[in-house]
C-alpha cells in the first residue's frame, strides 16, 4: 500500500472511509427499515405533508409524498448525503496541501522526485476513489436492504445514477476545498470557507424555491444539479452529474496551477 502517494493516501483514508461507509450504511439501513411504518400511515401522512409549509418541503428535496418510497428515501436520507460527504471532502481537501504544509511534512514529501502536480493529482484521485468506496458501501446497503422490505423498491440502475450524482457533489466539495487549500494561507480558513460554501449552497438552493426573486439564480448553486428524486422517478439523466464533475475539474485544475506556482510554506 505504500508504493506511491496515491496508494499511501488511500491507506491513510481507509479508517475514515470505513467509518463513513459503515455509519452512513447503518443510517440507510435504519431509514429503509422504518419505511413500512411511514407507508402504513398512508392518508394521514399525505394530509400532514400537504399542510407543511413550503419552506420545509424546500429543505427536504421538494418531496411531495412520504408514503412513496422514492420520496421518502430522498427526503429522509439522500438529500442530506452530500452535506455529510462534504465533511469528509472538506477535511481531506484542506488537509491535502495546506494541512500537509502546516504539519511540516510537505517539505519532506517534495524532497522526493515527485512533482507538485503529481502531489495534487495523486491526492485528488485517491480521495475521489475513497468517496466512491463510501458510496459503494451505501449503495450496497440500500439495495440489499430494500430487497427485504415490502414496497421499498429501488431499481439498481437508478440507484447507481443517484450515487453518481452524489459523487459529483462530493467531488465538487473536495475539489473546491483543495482549491482553497492551494490558495489560502491557512487550513483553518480554507475549512471555514469550505464549510460555509457547502451549507450555504444547501440553504441557497432551498431559498430559491421559497424566495421568488432568487429562482432565476438557482443554476448558480451546486444543489440545483443534485436531483435524486428526478432520477428515481423520471429520467436517468447524466447531465447534472456532468455539470458537477466539470465544475470539480475546473477547481482541481485551478488549485493545481496555483500550487505549482506558489511558495511552499515552511514551519
Amino acid at each position: 500500500m505504500l508504493r506511491n502517494l496515491l496508494l499511501k493516501t488511500l491507506r491513510d483514508q481507509r479508517i475514515p472511509v470505513l467509518a463513513y461507509g459503515l455509519g452512513l450504511g447503518a443510517l440507510a439501513l435504519l431509514i429503509v427499515a422504518i419505511y413500512p411504518a411511514f407507508a402504513a400511515s398512508g392518508a394521514e401522512l399525505e394530509e400532514a405533508m400537504e399542510n407543511l409549509p413550503d419552506a420545509y418541503k424546500a429543505f427536504t428535496g421538494g418531496v411531495l409524498s412520504l408514503t412513496e418510497f422514492d420520496g421518502y428515501l430522498v427526503s429522509q436520507y439522500l438529500i442530506i448525503l452530500p452535506l455529510i460527504l462534504a465533511i469528509f471532502a472538506i477535511i481531506e481537501g484542506t488537509g491535502a496541501l495546506r494541512g500537509e504544509e502546516e504539519r511540516g511534512t510537505m517539505d519532506t514529501l517534495l524532497s522526493l522526485p515527485i512533482s507538485r502536480s503529481q502531489v495534487v493529482l495523486h491526492k485528488a484521485i485517491a480521495t475521489l476513489i475513497s468517496v466512491v468506496f463510501v458510496l459503494i458501501i451505501i449503495g450496497a446497503v440500500l439495495y440489499v436492504s430494500t430487497q427485504f422490505v415490502e414496497d421499498a423498491t429501488l431499481a439498481l440502475d437508478r440507484l447507481a445514477v443517484v450515487l453518481l450524482n452524489t459523487f459529483g457533489m462530493g467531488a465538487l466539495f473536495y475539489c473546491f476545498s483543495l482549491f482553497l487549500s492551494a490558495s489560502l494561507p491557512s487550513r483553518r480558513l480554507a475549512g471555514v470557507i469550505g464549510a460555509v460554501f457547502a451549507v450555504g449552497a444547501y440553504f441557497f438552493d432551498a431559498m430559491t424555491d421559497i424566495v421568488e426573486g432568487l429562482y432565476d439564480y438557482r443554476i448558480l448553486g451546486p444543489f440545483n444539479y443534485f436531483e435524486p428524486l428526478a432520477i428515481l422517478k423520471e429520467d436517468l439523466s447524466f447531465q447534472n452529474s456532468g455539470v458537477l464533475l466539470g465544475a470539480s475539474l475546473v477547481f482541481l485544475v485551478a488549485g493545481l496551477l496555483i500550487f505549482r506556482r506558489r511558495d511552499v510554506a515552511g514551519i
Partner: peptide
C-alpha cells in the same frame, strides 16, 4: 539529491 531539515516532520 537527498534532504534532511533540522526539524524533520514525517508521517
Amino acid at each position: 539529491t537527498g534532504f534532511l531539515p533540522g526539524e524533520l516532520r514525517m508521517y
